[in-house]
Design a protein around this nucleic acid. Structure first.
Lengths: 331, 331
DNA sequence: ACAAGATCTGGAACCGCTTCCAGGACGACG
DNA sequence: CGTCGTCCTGGAAGCGGTTCCAGATCTTGT
């Protein structure tokens, strides 16, 4: 049986309250008292019961972390960084995987909401209003998504698209496709929007395909359509779609980058390993995970943030082998 | 402010205890009472406070789930399945990522131990005794690891190795290397042991290399050594190492499967996408995650398991393009 | 040396729920 | 009709902390 605060109090010969104070606010007790308590604590190996503490303080020391798919390397990376940072704050991380389903997501949030101090919602799929209402007045930070003025950390999608399109334009491509991911994805909508404006600004013809599921099969499924659209380059919502495209293209004798250039998003490990290696827009997932926790921690201690509560992280185009000059015939 | 059990009691005109009973043991209250309670609950949108409940019952409804690296697709897959299953049991999952470090792992377990009902330790890196002692008398299930008689779910590593070696032997390979992963990995030791006995049984010459870190770089780093050993085939501790090997081999003009055959473990997504696609031993991660939660749930309700508490899941060799006949010269 | 103020301490209430215990209502049985 | 057993119910005592409040102790200034 673990030692309780009572045991410590008895052993130290002080009251429960003094023990509590000695631990929580050491400068409010006399040094002598503090020492006796510390000795007793050490002797008993006492550690406060977080549940009990939670009951009286209303704080659990736990945060909820929601992702659409933990098996997606992007989210896994973000979670990893976040979890490490959370540990530094003494926060435990309750993981929730929504399987890309908005309903599951809402449900998950609702059931977890009473056992956490706050939420980090990574790329939530639910609608703005639902999201706003479901988390009540719990501190929430959004990752990879922006909803009104809620605290959020996003990657600079528009700039990612801009870099990709500029790269393709410089290679002589004039007609470029964007293969859209899940309709419920805010990121997808952002990229699509950026695609439209930037393509127009660069004088490129923009073609849109999708929406497909954000995986290899999604890319395979939409590849023929993309080809039929007569583009010389395609930007995929994410790497897995890009890889799927490349695969189906290859099967039809269309090779990258000779016949068509492909750009992905996320820089998942596989992208660097395949042939041709996929050109992709990389996003600093570590930074994102860390920053998410930092922001939430500030919110929990209702500290104000000098820098404001909505951050944008830089994306960076990684040029690899899947992009090259536009075919001469079309040029 | 959320409704408490008192509010419900007042509205229903019964005592707190009756409300509690009506919810937890409906057959112990008169139907009439139950109904009044139910109505009040519905009207107030009451949901019991899990923290408070935890304090009096000593159960939190939360389990700890520890992995060495959530960014590893194998573990991510296991976690995903586990988390889904846990949800069906109404259990929340506290995620802990040890970064492959035994000390971190122990630390993580220790700090989480007081806020969870039980643990699922996936491929823990710590030593047997530490592991046994650190989780005290908390229910624990081990995944991908066996320690004494502790409840565990493992993949059949020996059979995986057997399938791989049999496959290679059938292709005419006589001298085969095993590239070992982390020394702290129990799985690695299992595979190594199986490698030795099975190779001997098949009349193959077994060469051992490693230990390397279980990633691409690890494979790259050890590739030259493997080549120098004059083998015609190599089994890697996992796919990432296998991929690293293939890459460095390629850079030296040694191609798979022409010059050397490569077999990996885990069947990560990248393995199917690279060229040549990696032959690998696939393990049912979904089943593993589910089974882990099922087992822990049984333990939590101290139900006895008819099937015993140590399960082994079948591995399956997926033959792809990285393995082929041994080079004629050597044959 | 004494009053006023600052500092420290212990007692007790409380967080929201579970559960033990004792007593009331009720039916059955002799 | 009294008694006993069963079934329900409410009261109250925890679970292990935090925190308010009042009183005790210690400074400090004069």
């Amino acid at each position: 049986m673990a030692a309780t605060i009572k045991d410590v109090a008895r052993l130290a010969g002080v009251s429960q309250s003094s023990v509590s104070r000695a631990l929580a606010a050491p400068d409010q007790v006399r040094p002598a008292t503090r020492e006796r308590v510390e000795r007793a604590v050490a002797q008993l190996g006492y550690e406060p019961n977080r549940i009990a503490r939670g009951l009286s303080t209303g704080r659990t020391g736990t945060i909820g972390f929601l992702v659409p798919d933990i098996a997606n390397p992007l989210f896994a990376g973000i979670v990893k960084a976040a979890q490490r940072r959370a540990r530094e704050f003494g926060l435990a991380v309750l993981l929730a995987d929504s399987d890309e389903d908005p309903a599951t997501e809402l449900d998950l949030i609702r059931t977890l909401t009473k056992q956490v101090d706050g939420f980090v919602l990574c790329a939530p799929r639910a609608g703005d209003d639902e999201l706003r209402s479901v988390c009540g007045d719990l501190p929430v930070v959004l990752l990879n998504r922006r909803v009104g003025q809620l605290p959020s950390i996003i990657f600079d999608n528009a700039d990612g698209i801009r870099q990709a399109l500029a790269h393709l334009a410089a290679l002589g491509h004039r007609r470029v496709a964007y293969v859209a991911g899940p309709r419920t994805s805010w990121v997808n909508r952002e990229r699509l929007r950026a695609f439209r404006t930037v393509a127009a600004g660069l004088g490129l013809e923009g073609v849109e395909a999708g929406n497909v599921s954000p995986d290899f099969e999604g890319g395979v499924a939409v590849a023929d359509l993309v080809l039929a659209a007569g583009v010389t380059a395609v930007i995929a919502y994410n790497d897995m779609i890009g890889l799927g495209l490349a695969s189906r293209f290859g099967a039809r004798g269309v090779t990258a980058p000779g016949d068509v250039s492909i750009v992905g998003f996320d820089d998942i490990p596989a992208s660097a390993l395949v042939t041709p290696a996929l050109t992709t827009v990389s996003q600093p997932k570590d930074q994102c995970g860390r920053a998410g926790i930092d922001l939430l921690a500030d919110l929990l201690n209702d500290r104000d943030r000098p820098g404001g509560t909505r951050t944008s992280l830089p994306a960076r185009l990684i040029v690899r082998a899947s992009t090259g000059p536009a075919p001469a015939a079309v040029r």
